[in-house]
Structures are given as C-alpha cells and as structure tokens.
C-alpha cells in the first residue's frame, strides 16, 4: 500500500519538476549563435552539405568516437555474458518463400547499407544508419536459412580493423593538421561531390562497417546461433 503511495508521489514529483519546462516553453525563432557557426562552418570550412554529419564526425568527433566505443563495449560485454554456453537454438525451418526472396533481398539491403554510409555527408543518414541496415541484412540472412555459418574471424577482423583505422585517421589529423580527428587531411573537393569534404566520408564509412559488424555479432550472440 505504502509502495503505491510512494510511486504515485514520485510520479507527481516528476511531473511537478517538468511542469515549468512545459508551461513557459516557447519555440525559438532562429538558430542560436553556436548552431549558426556550425551551419556556416560546415558549408565553408568542411564543404559538407549535411550539417548534422559534419557536427557528428568533425566538430563533435570525440563524441562519435566515444559512441563507437560504447557500442564496441556493448558487443564485448554481451559476448562476455552470453558466450559462455552453446545454446542449441531449435530454429523453425523457414518457409521456402522466405528462403528464395531473402537471397535476393539480402544483396539489395547490403548495397542500400553501403550507399547510406558512403553518402553520409550528402544525404541524411550516415555511418550508424548504414551499419544498422547492413546488420538487418545479416539478420535476415541468419533468420532465413538456418544452416548459414557466420565466419567469426572475419567479423572480428572487420570490427577491429575499422576501429583502428578510425583512430588512425584521428591520429593522422593530429599529426598532419593540428587537430585530432580533423578532416582536413584529405582535399575538401567540390561541394556536393561524392569524394569531397575531406576525410568525413572515409570516417563515416569506417563507422558504418564497424557498427554493422558489431550489431551483427550482438545479434548473433543474442540469437545464439548453432
């Protein structure tokens, strides 16, 4: 009884806390000074159309590096927790329809994924979204035909390689052009081109590969493949 009272009290308290936020919240009319710098900087200095990508990859590059590490940690953590035992997943054999369409679909999903993270700096989306699409591709493949055997060593290699390459580019930025993770090490190229905006696309594709392989290994570990 007291417990429910306490929970109710807590919820009312939280509401009271957020209430002033909501009551006198008025939408902003224009960008604040920092956001305006980002937009101009992204267009003039980094020559990248997608401002969010420039913010993610360069201006707040350390965040994204941290972000990738968090995902890497999650993968390793889940691996540590669940890898301990071989669970024989009784997989219901998928219908024949799923089998055939999946072989076509998987390839298309892979291409879509690669497209997303290579064009991160041009179109919305980027490393994370591309990586997830690739992971869902692998998931489809995993679910569709039971006996596919994921080659773990390649997965680990891709993961580690992309991580180290990402850090390598960062160090190159530090060594060549005064800032850790500075995209200036590659030519900025023309605005809107595929090979433009310095190292941003390279970084984002590496992130894409890493996120893709990590999420796949999480799914594989969670799914408990044979």
């Amino acid at each position: 009884m007291i417990r429910n009272m306490a929970v109710l009290l807590a919820v009312i308290g939280l509401v009271a806390m957020f209430l002033p936020m909501v009551t006198d919240f008025q939408e902003r009319e224009n960008l604040n000074e920092l956001a305006a710098d980002y937009v101009e900087g992204s267009i003039n200095d980094l020559n990248t159309p997608n401002v969010v990508t420039s913010v993610i990859v360069t201006y707040r590059g350390l965040d994204t590096l941290g972000e990738v590490t968090v995902l890497f940690l999650a993968t390793v953590g889940v691996g540590l927790l669940l890898k301990g035992r071989k669970e024989d997943m009784i997989r219901i054999s998928s219908s024949e329809l799923l089998g055939t369409t999946s072989s076509v679909l998987v390839a298309m999903i892979m291409i879509l994924g690669i497209y997303i993270f290579t064009h991160g700096h041009l179109t919305p989306g980027g490393g994370f979204q591309g990586g997830v699409v690739i992971a869902s591709g692998f998931l489809l493949m995993l679910l569709s035909n039971v006996n596919v055997k994921m080659n773990h060593s390649i997965m680990h290699f891709v993961e580690s390689f992309s991580g180290v390459a990402y850090v390598g580019i960062g160090v190159a930025g530090l060594v060549l052009a005064i800032g850790f993770l500075n995209p200036g090490i590659l030519p900025l190229g023309r605005f809107g081109e595929l090979f433009s905006a310095g190292a941003i696309p390279v970084i984002y594709s590496l992130i894409g590969l890493k996120v893709g392989s990590e999420l796949t290994s999480i799914l594989v570990t969670m799914g408990g493949e044979k």
């Binding site: 960008l31 305006a36 980002y38 913010v55 972000e67 994370f128």
Partner: peptide, 18 residues
Amino acid sequence: VQKVVDPIPSALVLTAIV
C-alpha cells in the same frame, strides 16, 4: 542559416539512441 533547424540536438540524439 535562416532556413535550417538546429543541427546539434539531432547530432546528440543520434549518439543517445545508439
């Protein structure tokens, strides 16, 4: 600058979601 939504929260959310 006059036409665009604030990019920083979306950058933050991306990381937060993952």
